[in-house]
């Protein structure tokens, strides 16, 4: 699922200034609003704000509160101070789940972005062909279907009798065939591959549409200067795509850190705890082990982690022109 990402620019247009960007004029009179009392504006905002406050802000505050208690979700609770947080960072299993999420970034983000860039620049020339149009539809399919379905389909592909092993057999690699999701050394990468599959199409097409906005004369000029394809790619393509790359990285990093659906369906965190991620651990802790306080502490850590990772990416790739 494509998750929205924050824009740190408050009150400035979010559209990127491209060839088609509208240049807006700001009249000084506008700063005070449309001569409408602010009260009216607040009435317009109020419904959204109330729903948001009740179902998002309040739970956030409660998560922080719960995280300071030991509570089984049913009986009375006892004050725990920061004890739950200490446990999150010292309990090897809990901390490993955070590390696993970080490792998943390599698959959810690095592969789709790097591979997406390579593919997009290779197919840039045929971007307008009929094949590319079909591809646009096909590559979007993983974005449209529920992640649960992707998890089910891939668990089957990666099982010991699945298609992946069958294909390996055809090319004489029977030796490496295994139950990919049941093997300690390959389970996490296998989960990562599922995520990469989901996100690769989105990144490729996003980057491709960004490339189509690059002024072709830039490439011609570079050719005149004798630049080869690689040079072109590094000095023109990548810098021009800074914003798109930023978006891809942000979306995919959040998808990795907050992964739940795929892991829940394909491995339930196993074997051992090899694929346990914070999202799933929170679910288990809160609802089956009934350590609500611990679950909440992990939830707070996860929320902070996502913000800490997402903000710098936004800042680094923000269009400063």
């Amino acid at each position: 699922m494509t998750r929205p990402t924050p824009d740190s620019a408050v009150d400035s247009p979010a559209t990127r200034p491209g060839p088609a960007a509208v240049t807006r004029k700001r009249s000084p009179a506008r700063a005070g609003g449309l001569r409408t009392p602010s009260r009216v504006g607040w009435l317009f905002v109020a419904p959204a704000l109330i729903v948001y406050a009740v179902f998002v802000l309040r739970p956030i505050v409660l998560t922080v509160q719960y995280s300071l208690y030991r509570w089984d979700g049913i009986g009375p609770s006892t004050w725990a101070g920061l004890g739950n947080y200490v446990k999150v960072f010292t309990d090897p299993d809990l901390f490993a789940s955070i590390l696993n999420a970080v490792k998943l970034i390599a698959f959810f983000s690095v592969i789709p972005v790097v591979l997406g860039l390579a593919i997009a620049s290779t197919i840039r020339r045929i971007a307008a062909s009929r094949l590319a149009l079909v591809a646009r539809t096909v590559l979007f399919l993983p974005q449209v279907i529920p992640l649960v379905a992707a998890g089910i389909a891939w668990s089957w592909l990666l099982s010991s009798t699945g298609l992946v092993n069958q294909l390996l057999g055809y090319v004489g690699l029977d030796g490496v065939a295994r139950a990919w999701l049941g093997d300690f050394s390959t389970a996490l990468p296998a989960v990562g591959v599922i995520g990469a599959w989901v996100l690769l199409g989105l990144c490729t097409i996003l980057l491709l549409s960004g490339m189509s906005k690059i002024d072709p004369s830039l490439y011609e000029a570079a050719r005149m200067d004798g630049a080869n394809s690689l040079r072109e790619f590094i000095s023109i393509t990548v810098p021009s795509l800074r914003q798109e790359i930023g978006v891809c990285v942000t979306v995919t990093v959040i998808a990795a850190l907050a992964s739940f659906d795929i892991v829940y369906v394909s491995t339930q965190g196993g074997p051992g705890n090899a694929t346990m991620v914070p999202g799933l651990e929170i679910y288990y802790l809160a609802f089956s082990e009934r350590q609500v306080g611990m679950a909440s502490a992990l939830a707070v850590v996860l929320m902070l982690l996502v913000i800490l990772v997402a903000l710098p990416i936004q800042w680094l790739t923000k269009d400063r022109s």
Binding site: Y52, F55, V56, I60, P278, I307
Partner: peptide, 22 residues
């Protein structure tokens, strides 16, 4: 607006526990 934007990156797992009790 800032208050709203802060919610953009929120992982749903972060608030699922209190949401359940609420």
């Amino acid at each position: 607006f800032l208050v709203f934007v802060l919610g953009l990156t929120l992982p749903f797992e972060g608030i699922i526990t209190p949401l359940y009790y609420q």
